[in-house]
Amino acid sequence: MPLTVPAHGPEAAARLASMSDVTASDGSLRRFLHGLPGVDAVGLEGRAATLGTRSIKTTAKAYAIDLAISMIDLTTLEGADTPGKVRALCAKGVHPDPLDRSTPKVAAICVYPDMVKVAKESLGDSGVKVASVATAFPAGRAALPVKLADVADAVAAGADEVDMVIDRGAFLAGHYLKVYDEIRAVKEACRRPDSTSAHLKVIFETGELSTYDNIRRASWLGMLAGADFIKTSTGKVAVNATPPNTLILLEAVRDFRETVGVQVGVKPAGGIRTTKDAIKFLVLVNETVGEDWLSNDWFRFGASSLLNDLLMQRQKLSTGRYSGPDYVTVD
């Protein structure tokens, strides 16, 4: 038996089953989650800030920029999204810089369920995945059958990945088992007829969980329930991904792999707009969980405007002069 198995692999279920005493009841879940080590906010933020002072230059910067591009879930989640807009975004995802074909493609295009089909067709066999938000994104305020239908719809339309939101109300009320069961149900709904599954990303909306202790508990809860990725935010609230809350997620996946033997991915989303920001997150990954997570199988950025800044910085590195917004595509 391998030491570590991927959360999206066939062996993960057995590993998770080994934690069944923890997830047996609301009470046992609460005791477990509340027994996780506490988080000192000042210390956490201090560590994140210190890592933020790393100076990533020249070859390291070039590497980081390409890595960051390859990790982007290029996202459009607007009420005004149209097939045309989504197709343009897909084209950009495959060839982010039309003038430089050596630019890596992004990891995925992230859209609402009704746009999955369009995106899937546009991307074809490019290798860029289609991710769909679901479960009454972003508020998550709908009955479970509605949420599951939302998921099934996206999967049926060809989504490779599903980004669900947890029920923050239930979480904050301490109904951990309810949240757990819901994630399990969504995971089940990700299953395709051929018994493969869309990968499940579980969004906590960390900005609404209020405390770092809660983020740590939510991370474990999500992973125990079978999350393939854990994700900070919807991008739709005031505070989205930050270095400290992403650091909590990284510590959680590190400790989860140590304890359960299952490796889970991490996706900060929302508010990451500049190359400088993205590199800070990569440094967090590098120095918290290391190389094992430094690929788009295990780390993603949920972002839209970040890509253009990465492209401009990439052009600067290759040409030596600063680029401008007219030299990257507007979507």
Partner: peptide, 13 residues
């Protein structure tokens, strides 16, 4: 002793 920190929602708590 640490006091607060800005917290995950950006507000002191």
């Amino acid at each position: 002793h640490p006091a607060g920190g800005s917290g995950s929602s950006g507000a002191a708590y």
